[in-house]
Computed example of a mutant assay.
Amino acid sequence: MSRQAHPSDALNAVFRPVQEQFELWLQSQSEAVATQSLYATVSRTALAWLPERAVADAQSISVSDMSAMVVFFGGRYQPGSMRTVVSALRVLCRFLEESGSVTGLSQAVPAQMVRRVRSVGVVPADGIDALVNSTDISTPMGLRDRALLLLAARTGLRPVDIAGLRLRDIDWAQAKITLVQHKTGAVLTLPLLADVGEAIADYPLHGRPVGGEDDHVFLRSHAPYVGLRPCDSLYWVASRAFARSGTITQNGTGRGFRVLRASFATRLLEDGTLLTVISGALGHRTIDSAKHYLSTDETRMRACCLDFAGIAPRGTRS
């Protein structure tokens, strides 16, 4: 018989209880389950690294240790991901400070980190139509993929929420979709637009495998007929559509469902929709999460540029 490994097995006898107490403390902070898991992963890596720096226990962690830890994580993660990492480290420092182990550690963690190093990849409205219409609706897989693409393009739902959509989440009589977001744990209600509803209905009526017990709306096209995985399954649905239609994003990057989410937000911006409304439609907790979509509104961004009036040149090149 084999013993299944525990995620905290890499921690020694001193830091493993600290990790367990931290995870219990996270549960009391009303964070979403996905956020708790992410913070626990970062803290587990951090606590496992401390003995390499000759830190014996939690009480011995110094400000310089935390600074070195940020540098350590910087070598493991991309710049965009470091924003989440430093957030997790700040939460870990707050736990250590509240538990009385140490004081002043939070000062060693940067207050801000870059979120993106390039602009958001989006496609115009005609590009969205090309992606949706590239599917072969004479096949069950084509019916499914068309419904998936249209749902993402018209609602801006996250890929994980699209993959997790259940039959009970759709209220056909009231024409709305209500679900619990995987990332935030908050309830989100969206209108079920006519074209989206028709595409989703066509799939269970003419293409969805029958006889299965899985209640996910979208299932694998081959046995076992279970729900799709948001990472690889949905990516390949979008990637194939990009390849078939020849569609490329505005900045030439991205071929997944997050491009459709960003394109949805961009269209709302172009129509003059308030950022607070866009943030609510995308299921964000705060308006800050939607601000990076502002970079895609090129027309209004150009209006923010300053001229050189009042700036006297120091000299000219010969």
Rank of each mutant, 00 (worst) to 15 (best):
F95D: 00
F95G: 01
L96M: 10
E97F: 02
E98D: 08
E98Q: 13
G100R: 04
S101P: 00
V102F: 09
T103Q: 13
G104P: 03
G104I: 03
G104S: 06
G104N: 11
S106H: 10
S106I: 12
Q107P: 01
Q107D: 09
Q107F: 09
A108L: 08
V109G: 02
P110Y: 10
A111M: 11
Q112A: 08
M113V: 07
M113E: 07
M113K: 09
V114L: 13
V114N: 07
R116N: 14
R116D: 09
V117L: 11
V117S: 08
R118E: 13
R118Y: 13
R118C: 08
R118Q: 13
S119D: 14
S119H: 14
S119P: 11
G121K: 05
V123H: 03
V123N: 05
P124W: 12
P124C: 06
D126T: 09
D126P: 00
G127W: 01
I128Q: 02
I128A: 03
D129P: 01
D129S: 12
A130H: 03
V132K: 03
V132L: 00
V132N: 04
N133T: 15
N133F: 00
S134L: 02
T135S: 12
T135L: 06
D136T: 03
D136G: 05
I137E: 14
S138R: 12
S138H: 15
T139H: 03
P140H: 02
P140M: 08
P140C: 03
G142V: 06
L143E: 10
L143C: 09
R144L: 03
R144M: 04
D145N: 15
L148V: 14
L148Q: 06
L150V: 06
L151M: 14
A152N: 04
A152S: 11
A153W: 01
R154N: 11
T155L: 15
T155D: 13
G156L: 04
G156M: 06
L157E: 05
L157K: 10
L157T: 01
R158V: 04
P159A: 08
P159F: 00
P159R: 12
D161M: 02
I162Q: 08
I162F: 10
A163T: 03
A163E: 01
A163W: 04
A163K: 05
A163N: 01
A163Q: 00
G164A: 13
L165I: 12
L165D: 05
L165S: 10
R166C: 06
R166V: 04
L167G: 09
R168V: 12
R168A: 12
D169N: 15
D171T: 08
W172A: 10
A173H: 13
A173G: 13
Q174C: 11
Q174K: 15
A175C: 15
A175L: 15
K176T: 09
